[in-house]
């Protein structure tokens, strides 16, 4: 699997990039590719997302320069922003196994955060990676032309107060956490990026 570090990319722009990669992958012109990046502050609502889960008015957010985007993925509301490593695996699934794919992303992120001293786990029925009862990474995958897009967001040094302004993924009372919050130390984004790239390289092979 190839890994591409894109730096900070606006949400919409990143979506266009994903689709460009997806088309090339569907045509078998490129290998499976993991896009790694960060987003500027943005709240995204999935197709079924309830705007009531956004606890702050759009006007308030707009005045802070934070956008709210409605996007064509599943899931409810989530937040992306600085200090959060976002990964979009563009993986061709010749024989699709979407559950295994999501579990593999979870496994990769569990491997990656373990390197930083954070024990984490899955919770049956709740997609994502959890450190104790708090969510450290969220996952939302889409498939088009039998190629995956969207992916995961791992909180590294994310400003967690941003999550208190939403009901995370529509789940009331669920809290977010980050590697920095769990360990009291702030790892370099570059280090986390390498760990995540290595873990995804191992776990996300063999879907084609």
């Amino acid at each position: 699997m190839d890994t591409v570090w894109l730096g900070e990319v606006a949400y919409r722009e990143a979506l266009d990039l994903q689709l460009a990669y997806l088309d090339r992958r569907a045509a078998r012109r490129i290998p499976d590719t993991l896009l790694l990046l960060t987003h500027p502050h943005v709240y995204t609502l999935g197709r079924g997302g309830d705007e009531a889960n956004l606890l702050v008015s759009r006007e308030t957010l707009a005045s802070e320069g934070i956008s709210v985007e409605r996007v064509g993925r599943g899931g409810d509301i989530t937040y992306h922003g600085p200090g959060q490593l976002v990964g979009y695996p563009i993986v061709l699934m010749e024989k699709p196994d979407v559950h295994k794919f999501v579990r593999s992303i979870e496994a990769a992120l569990i491997d990656a955060v373990r390197a930083f001293g954070v024990p984490s786990r899955r919770i049956e029925g709740l997609t994502g990676v959890w450190a104790g009862e708090r969510k450290i990474a969220s996952i939302g995958v889409g498939i088009r032309k039998w190629v995956t897009y969207h992916g995961f967001a791992l909180n590294v040094t994310t400003d967690l107060s941003m999550f208190r302004r939403i009901h995370l993924c529509g789940l009331k009372g669920r809290e977010a956490t980050s590697i920095a919050e769990e360990t009291g130390s702030a790892p370099a984004m570059e280090a986390v990026r390498e760990a995540v790239a290595a873990a995804c390289g191992r776990r996300l092979e063999g879907f084609a």
């Binding site: 990656a112 373990r114 370099a188």
Partner: peptide, 18 residues
Amino acid sequence: PPTTGRIRITPVVARMAV
């Protein structure tokens, strides 16, 4: 965030750990 007992590692070490 404030530094308390921080673990700082290089990318190479992170990769090796994984």
